[in-house]
Design a binder for these strands. Sequence first.
RNA 1: UCCCCGAUAGCUCAAUUGGUAGAGCGAGCGGCUGUUAACCGCUAGGUUGCAGGUUCGAGUCCUGCUCGGGGAGCCA
Length: 525
Amino acid sequence: MVIQWLIMKRSWIECYQIDMVDMMSTTVTISKLNEHVGETVTLAGWLYNSRIGSKVAFLIVRDGTGLCQGVVTKEEVEPEVFADAVHLTQESSVRVTGLVHADERAVGGYELHVTGLEPVHSAVEYPITLKAHGHDFLFKHRHLWLRSRRPTAIMKIRHTVIDAVRRFFNDNGFVLVDTPIFAPSAGEGAQTLFSVDYFGEPMYLAQTGQLYLESAAMAYGKVYCFGPTFRAEKSKTRRHLTEFWMVEPEIAYADLDDVMAVAEDFVYTIAQRVLAEHRADLEFLGQDVAVLERIRKPFYRLTYSQAVDILHGPQARELLEKDLAEKNARIEELKQSIPAKEQERDRPGVKKYRQEQLAAEVITEREELADLQEQVKNIPTHMELAAGFEWGKDLGGSDETIISRLHDRPVFVTHYPRGCKAFYMKQDPHDSRLVKNFDLLAPDGYGEIIGGSQREDDLDVLLERMAEEGLATEPYEWYLDLRRYGSVPHGGFGLGIERTVAWLCGLRHIRETIAYPRLMGKVYP
RNA sequence: UCCCCGAUAGCUCAAUUGGUAGAGCGAGCGGCUGUUAACCGCUAGGUUGCAGGUUCGAGUCCUGCUCGGGGAGCCA
């Protein structure tokens, strides 16, 4: 009883304190500080960093909308306030009250001349410091790392990308139809699906909603689905996740060109939104905004056969040779500069801060060196793969990289051989070896961000194609019905959200584009 | 599934041909400053991923394993 009473009393006191603060000033977000210059306001956030002096304490506070520097001047505040400021640890939660000033010296352009501090919770030894960390450590602390500036910038861009995706389809007459995640049949390539026990029956996690979406397109004309998708591929590369988000539109009465026109407009629109709303975030991430500004309609269009010719031709070879030469030159440069910097670092009499600066540069350059050496090692393989590419195979990752790097805008590659593509794609009436499909390759080696096609709408051709693939028709009877009751030309595509975000942000690895990446052998946290 | 690379203090990294494991950050204390990953001084901090082997002596060489990174295949 007594304890309960104490808890009640304590929480009452805390409420009372909050009320006191509220009475004195309104709580605002850092993003809205520009509307409150000259007013006393309260920020509710966490301590990002502090620089403590004998007369002035600088508190960098973050609240999820931005960073703001609070200035605590010893002479101007109550002694307890200054003492609280000195003892606040990194990532402690805190309410800060003060007068808003515009100040170019401060991060974000505004700062708070602090009059009151209300520590809410004191954090103990926050593991993520403002110094360098390795990605392994950071991903083990992903639940905390999300608070840092880099993940914040990426998550906000991802948010905008997803909003742009939904708005594009909603504004253009598409109906959202959610497709099931439990999929009864393995469909294409059972080995790449995760299986689950469904009340004793084998089931799979969906890797596409497309077949279901085709039925919805026959019902509502233009439809889309957006959700997680799962691939059990044992791929450990910077382009792969086992769980990722995909948006898939499907359009009735549309041929390949119609679908591609939508895809082109769609990607262009997304890029424009990101460019319009996230210049600062992109710059913080070190992304060259010009990369996005170059995204203009029309995108390049190549057929698969033209792409193969490029791989066999002098262009691809020259690109890789030039690449190899440039990377080797940079490697030589680094091999000189690293020991030079180490020497300077270890020379007696060098200031400590300079030592640290040099040590940091050495680490960065060593990483760059290792990365380049690895890339250089792979280039001959990529050259061989390109030169020896056989017509009929699917384009590999390195082949796509070559094609995309030879273009400064996204590239459509169309009309692949039907043997390397799924059974539902429409045969090209002009060349039965080909299907009416397309992949959209993002520039700079970010790979295929879209795969799409016109679908086979002729029942007999579809049945023939399924037999060729050794697929039983029984589980697909409902799908075949769509070709029995008012079949029309139709098609659609799927866009991978994470690859798109990685490309727009210029990220080296896709795992940074999702809050909790799921990779082969990595599921914590 | 195959190929290459890696694992040293809480974190980021050093450690010459095999010869007494170090620095910075972070933590604690003190100083100083409209500071910008602030700075300066002091203190504490280690079974070098695990198991074997070679050697007078192994962080360093060899074998196996575990975990991680990159690439091929496959894919968004």
